[in-house]
Design a protein around this nucleic acid. Structure first.
Length: 930
RNA sequence: GCCCGGGUGGCGGAAUUGGCAGACGCGGGGGAUUCAAAAUCCCCUUCUCUUCGGGGAGUGCGGGUUCAAGUCCCGCCCCGGGCACCA
């Protein structure tokens, strides 16, 4: 934008916007404008605002990226800021701040690329991001901004870990309890040991190991996701369906390792149930439900010659249709089950060309272990091999063959199934492959020509179940199983316990040491925090599939051993060398926002109660991207529930209302070779796009470096100013929707601010153009209708339509073409204040106010101006609009009818035609059917 | 395959309980102002036909309910996202 010599001196342009924006940002900082008072403690009230109802508004914890922000990042931050500002003006004590999720893989990977130490790199990134966000004019309480990497923060992350380590889940009361309760229950025999042995007969080490196996945070040797390229193991949630790491897309291998686990499965049912009380979108709830994956059914015991095993099924009603069994290739009982020789008349197809069942099984195990998850999915043809043994169907004594196949997963249920091809598509396919018997136990509807029938219908071929529908048949069969002790009602979950250790440097150290017995011991609270040692060589080694993970902390040789007094004098202990995963800090950061300066507790009781235990229970509004639908939101709910059980927080759920903002997308251009070209240099001509005179093709994608379509906030400040950027982002569309960025459209938002400015300020002189006179009635009506709509839109986060209403009001003021009545100016400035706080503050100050508009009450509509005296009524003939009449709004139906008939156009259409039917909706419309 | 979203002008998007489709903005066209331009202000801008009065069609497609359907019902198509051999 070139400087025009004759541009009015006091025009609202980008240079002027930048000046007042920086002025107000400094002012707000000096005045602590956005400090939200606590009921007690260091952040206690000095303003009186603590008397107002509270509101806790949050953005999802960002990680401080090294590459800086683009205009897509702050969309949600602006949304929450506008809402928070609106709520402050309507009388709430609003807590809104922002912290940094600075530990973990992203930060470490970035440090690794730049070669800088993660701490230096992280601190630089945080300060950079703080500056960028400050420039947007976000009204955050800066005293409450925390980073997970702060010592004072991760001290409490470790403290919470100890709470989890020191508790167990008591299924009889369905909540977590202190581990000391468990010790008493075990020693007095109220809780029996699995092997019926006596507690007192166990050695102290055995007793400790037993107790350890109950803890919410526990060590377990379990098959884990080992990612050599990242040098660490990963949680299930961090591995894609293709068996690769979600971050970096590196191959991941399953292998058993001893790792810290979190007993989230104990909470599976509560995590599922409590979704009901949350104000979250159905989409997110569904994703969580699917992830938890609750299935109700029965566990049924099948006997073989030598042994017995259990299967899980959701369809116990189909037991009469079980014609074969399948075990997962890794099933631990295979050793006992596999026969020495093939039974007589074993079909060749079942042997897979092997001379003995053992060789066949071993061969199959080998092949399937080499298959990646991807291979398993792509190769849909069912494979398997007969193990040479038969099982007995408990309900009818039938002997059915046992197979192994990789379509049965060891990780779900019991790793074994009863196959009912008549009612299960997968079993049907396998039965076709191996020529196995198929018995239908549910009558398919007439004309059914499909394979397995999974729908409802009357039971057949099932003796005492015949005629019952699925639900009743299931119940009847479960009764039978329990009566005859052949099985029990059972429920399984897809949710697995949460793998909690990482072999990385940049994370919270565990507050755990190992003693002489190599058993874990909690580091006493007075030794917290366990500080992350400063390591020069912090990068993970690149490793291969078979090597063991090497935690980098093992290289801090003088840190590895610790002198501690854990109750029986100073001794040397070996430290836990793993670190916590990134999710640890984000599981509870919102609680630290509440009381960030407290060095006695992670959050004080009354502060927590004040902010969390309001009308809704939990954070009042939580805005973030949908990508955290399962990971963060599930982990965080789990920690919160454990803290709730232990009495540390007052609500069962952390986030009452969740709102998923959309993403800003941007056009991206590829040349003929498919290479992305710099989007800002592409020119459009007659619908064609060219880059350096070469035609390129356009598509839309996430904004970012790789697609060469980033637009930075800084460019927008230069061209338009922060208020315009805020306004444009809020105007583009509904907050929850993806929308394409268009720099050329931003000017519309700048124009609105210029028009607002021009309606109140003389551009040539800079003087106010406001008069103390009565507002004309018609403008007054529009004013109050606008207040009404804007309030409604703000409450519902519909900022785009709020801006449209404000624009209409402003257009009305422009049209009146006279000096603006002070009343109108006052209202207008308040309406825009949440959206464009800088220019609103500036105008408010120019109007002679010496306190900030941030806490000035938002206008309230006067109901007398919301109803107008006349109303325009559309008149339809046969449902088609033919005319409109303006009538008094309280006109009676019959008068309205007559008025409609008297309308010239209507009269000419109807004249001598018969009216078959008339619909008169008072105040709304008239429709004649002829 | 299953489960969620969504499909409205050239573009982003508006439209309580079914009641004037296209608010508001971008882009485009015209005018005023100006020596001229920029900026600003005003008007027009769904498509289509038109004798300039107006007529017809129109919210992904095909049916239906209704005086009246973007909105409700049935059957499809397309796009985005999630899950995916979970017994």
């Amino acid at each position: 934008m070139n400087e025009r010599t004759d541009t009015p001196e006091y025009r609202y342009d980008s240079a002027f916007a930048n000046t007042i924006e920086e002025k107000w940002q400094d002012r707000w900082e000096q005045d602590g404008t956005y400090f939200a008072p606590n009921p007690s403690g260091k952040l206690a009230d000095q303003t009186g605002r603590i008397e107002a109802p509270k509101l806790f508004i949050m953005d999802m914890f960002p990680y401080p990226s090294g590459s800086g922000l683009h205009v897509g990042h702050p969309l949600g931050f602006i949304g929450t800021d506008v809402f928070a500002r609106y709520k402050r003006m309507t009388g709430y004590n609003v807590l809104h701040t922002m912290g940094y999720d600075a530990f973990g893989l992203p930060a470490e990977e970035h440090a690794r690329q730049t070669g800088q130490h993660p701490r230096d790199n992280t601190n630089a990134n945080i300060s950079n991001m703080r500056n960028q966000l400050r420039r947007l004019g976000l009204g955050h309480d800066s005293r409450r901004s925390v980073s997970t990497t702060d010592l004072e923060f991760y001290k409490w992350t470790q403290w919470i870990f100890l709470q989890l380590f020191n508790s167990w889940y008591d299924p009889t009361v369905d909540k977590a309890r202190p581990i000391s309760d468990l010790e008493s229950l075990l020693s007095n025999g109220d809780i029996k040991l699995d092997d019926e042995s006596n507690w007192d007969s166990l050695t102290p080490a055995q007793q400790r190991e037993t107790i350890n196996s109950y803890r919410l945070a526990y060590l377990a040797e379990a098959p884990v996701n080992w990612c050599p390229a990242l040098g660490t193991v990963l949680a299930n949630e961090e591995v894609t369906a293709e068996g690769r790491s979600e971050r970096g897309n590196h191959p991941v291998f399953r292998r058993p390792l001893k790792q810290w686990m979190m007993r989230i499965t104990a909470y599976a049912d509560r995590l599922l149930q409590d979704l009901e009380i949350l104000d979250w979108s159905e989409a997110i709830k569904t994703m969580q439900r699917n992830w938890i994956g609750k299935s109700e059914g029965a566990e049924i015991t099948f006997k073989t010659e030598e042994t017995e095993f259990k299967v899980f099924t959701t369809r116990p009603d189909t037991l009469f249709g079980a014609t074969y069994m399948v075990l997962a290739p890794e099933h631990p009982l295979l050793g006992e089950i596999v026969a020495d020789v093939w039974p007589d008349q074993t079909p060749e197809r079942w042997k897979n060309g092997m001379p003995t069942p053992l060789e066949a099984v071993q061969n199959y195990q080998k092949i399937s272990s080499q298959k990646s998850d991807l291979d398993r999915q792509e190769n849909k043809t069912k494979t398997g091999v007969f193990v040479g043994e038969f099982a007995t169907v408990p309900v009818n004594g039938k002997k059915i063959p046992i197979f192994i196949s990789d379509y049965v997963l060891m990780g779900y249920g019991t790793g074994a199934i009863m196959a009912v091809p008549g009612q299960d598509e997968r079993d049907w396919e396998f039965a076709q492959e191996y020529d196995l018997e198929i018995i239908r136990t549910v009558q398919p509807p007439e004309g059914w020509d499909g394979d397995a029938f999974t729908g409802d219908g009357p039971a057949i071929n099932s003796q005492f179940l015949d005629g019952l529908n699925i639900t009743d048949a299931k119940e009847r069969m479960i009764e039978w199983l329990e009566e005859t002790e052949n099985g029990t009602r059972n429920t399984t979950y897809k949710l697995r316990d949460w793998l909690f250790s990482r072999q990385r440097y940049w994370g919270e150290p565990f507050p755990i040491v190992y003693d002489d017995e190599d058993l874990p011991v909690a580091v006493p609270e007075n030794y917290l925090p366990v500080e992350l040692p400063d390591l020069m060589d912090w990068a993970p080694r690149s490793l291969d599939e078979t090597s063991d993970p090497e935690p980098p902390l093992g290289r801090a040789s003088d840190w590895v051993y610790a002198e501690l007094d854990i109750g029986d004098g100073m001794k040397t202990y070996k430290r836990e060398l793993n670190t916590m995963p990134q999710w640890a800090g984000s599981c509870w950061y919102y609680l630290r926002y509440l009381d960030p300066t407290n060095d006695e507790q992670f959050v004080s009781k009354d502060v927590e109660d004040y902010w969390m235990n309001g009308e809704t229970g939990g954070v009042d509004l939580y805005v973030g991207g949908v990508e955290h639908a399962v990971l963060h939101l599930l982990y965080s709910r789990f920690w919160h529930k454990a803290l709730f059980d232990l009495g540390h927080v007052s609500t069962p759920e952390p986030f009452h209302r969740l709102y998923n903002q959309g993403y800003i997308q941007a056009a991206t251009y590829q040349d003929s070779r498919g290479i992305f070209v710099e989007a800002s240099e592409v020119v459009e001509e007659n619908g064609d796009f060219t880059y350096q005179n070469e035609v390129v093709t356009r598509s839309f994608g996430k904004m970012g470096k790789s697609l060469k379509n980033s637009v930075t906030p800084d460019e927008m400040y230069d061209q338009f100013g922060a208020d315009t950027l805020r306004l444009y982002e809020m105007f583009m569309g509904p907050l929850d929707q993806d929308r394409p960025w268009e720099t050329k459209s931003v000017v519309g938002s700048l124009r609105l601010l210029q028009r607002v400015w021009r309606n109140l300020v003389n551009e040539e002189t800079g003087a106010l153009q406001i008069v103390d006179k009565e507002t004309p009635l018609e403008l007054k009506r529009i004013l109050h209708q606008t207040i009404h709509s804007v309030r409604e839109d703000m409450e519902n986060l519909r900022f785009n339509t709020a801006i449209a209403r404000i624009t209409e009001l402003n257009n009305e003021i422009t049209k009146s073409n006279t000096e603006t009545p002070r009343e109108v100016a006052d209202v207008l400035i308040h309406l825009i204040a949440p959206l464009v706080p800088h220019v609103a503050e500036e105008l408010w100050e120019m109007l002679g106010n010496d306190s900030s508009i941030v806490y000035s009450p938002f206008p309230v509509p006067d109901p007398t101006y919301l109803v107008s005296e006349t109303v325009e009524i559309p008149i339809q003939i046969n449902g088609k609009l033919k005319s409109k009449i303006t009538v008094p709004s309280d006109l009676s139906s019959s008068d309205l009818r007559n008025a409609a008939l008297a309308d010239e156009k209507i009269a000419s259409i109807i004249s001598d035609t018969e009216i078959k039917k008339e619909i008169i909706v008072d105040g709304k419309l008239v429709n004649f059917v002829i």
